[in-house]
Amino acid sequence: MPRPLAPPVFDTAAAYPQVAAARDALAAGDWPAMRAVVDAQDAHGRTVLVGGVEDAADAETFLRKVLAAQPDDPVAAAMLGAHLIRAGWRIRTAQRAQDVSREQFAQFFDHLRRAEQVLIEATARHPDDAAAWTQRVTSARGLQLGQAEARRRYDRLAARHPHHLPAQSSLLQQLCPKWSGTWEKAHDFTRECTAAAPPGAPNAVLIVEVHLEQAFDHGTLSAARAFLRGQQVRAAIHDAAQRSIWHPEFRHGWGWVRVRSTFALAFCLMQEWTSAAQQFAALGDLGDESMFGYFGDAVAQFQRFRDKAYAKGGQP
């Protein structure tokens, strides 16, 4: 009999204990402890931590107090910007623009403009700070500043951090048609990032992300499946897997849970159940919302696809 499956754990702290340490420091109002955790990470890790603790109660009040005392603190600025952006996006919701009320948009833009004020100064003081620039790529999209401005911000970041996946994923959203981009631009960007990344790097997941975005744009699940099973799309996703999750140099560093979760979803929709089951097995009890939320409740959908992958592809 197969072992019972625990619900997936989507909390980033389960995969990255540094997130729990940062949250504890923020909850305790211990800024030196927070800085010690963040400063020990690489650029990817700093960006995750900056965006991973912004929902803490009274975070805005505390972070503004830190900034008032230490105006040059890049972590406090980036974290405050991330907090405001996230709060604004919760108000806006993930609905299409036509389904968002005028009042929601007004509050959304207010939050993002306040974030911009903080982040513009942060990147002026610290032009090499990947976390702050990543937030500015996201805020450019929300404020509808256009393709050129979003790309300008990304290019400023990429000049110092050429393989920064969080910023690449954010810009990819901007390049999709739903944010006034084109599929040609979106695919060109993912190929550019994938080709430039080192062997075994996680960046090839961008190829999967853009194909999933285009698949879901077809409107129905059956049409999405048919698109992903097309010969050229399947070959592109397999090549992306060879460059990342199937490559011997792939490591479980920052972002690995999202990468494997995204590939697992793609393999399920492609009906490549053995490959999907392998990704779910590598995840263990961990998971990432990734794009599972496109079908409804992300946890329920993750479980549904995982159960089917194990039933058809084999459960370890």
Rank of each mutant, 00 (worst) to 15 (best):
Q173T: 09
Q174I: 05
L175H: 07
L175I: 08
L175G: 10
L175Y: 05
L175S: 07
C176S: 13
C176Y: 03
C176H: 04
P177R: 06
W179P: 00
W179M: 07
S180E: 13
S180N: 13
G181S: 12
G181D: 11
T182E: 04
W183F: 08
E184V: 13
H187K: 12
H187T: 12
F189G: 03
F189E: 01
R191E: 08
E192C: 01
T194M: 03
T194A: 14
A195C: 02
A195K: 01
A195N: 04
A195V: 08
A196N: 01
A197Q: 06
P199I: 05
G200R: 07
A201K: 03
A201G: 15
N203V: 08
A204K: 01
A204L: 06
A204V: 06
A204N: 00
V205K: 00
I207S: 07
I207P: 00
I207Y: 00
I207A: 11
V208N: 02
V208C: 09
E209M: 14
V210W: 02
H211Y: 13
H211Q: 15
L212R: 01
E213D: 14
Q214K: 10
A215H: 03
F216R: 07
F216S: 02
D217V: 05
D217L: 02
T220V: 10
T220G: 03
T220E: 04
T220Q: 06
L221T: 12
L221H: 08
S222Q: 14
A223N: 11
A223E: 15
A224G: 14
R225K: 15
A226Y: 03
F227A: 10
F227G: 04
L228M: 07
L228T: 02
R229Q: 15
R229F: 04
R229H: 07
G230Y: 10
G230N: 10
Q231N: 12
Q231F: 04
Q231T: 13
Q232W: 01
V233M: 07
R234F: 08
H238E: 14
H238S: 10
D239R: 11
A240S: 05
A241N: 04
A241D: 13
A241S: 13
A241C: 07
R243W: 00
R243Q: 05
R243F: 02
R243S: 04
S244C: 15
I245H: 10
I245T: 14
I245W: 07
I245K: 08
W246A: 06
W246M: 07
W246Q: 11
H247Q: 09
H247K: 06
H247S: 12
P248I: 11
E249C: 11
E249N: 11
F250H: 15
F250Y: 15
F250M: 04
F250E: 07
R251C: 09
R251W: 00
R251K: 12
H252F: 13
H252I: 01
H252V: 04
H252D: 13
G253C: 01
G253T: 15
G253R: 14
W254I: 06
W254V: 07
G255W: 10
G255M: 14
G255F: 11
W256Y: 15
W256M: 12
V257N: 06
V257Q: 04
R258T: 12
R260Q: 11
R260P: 00
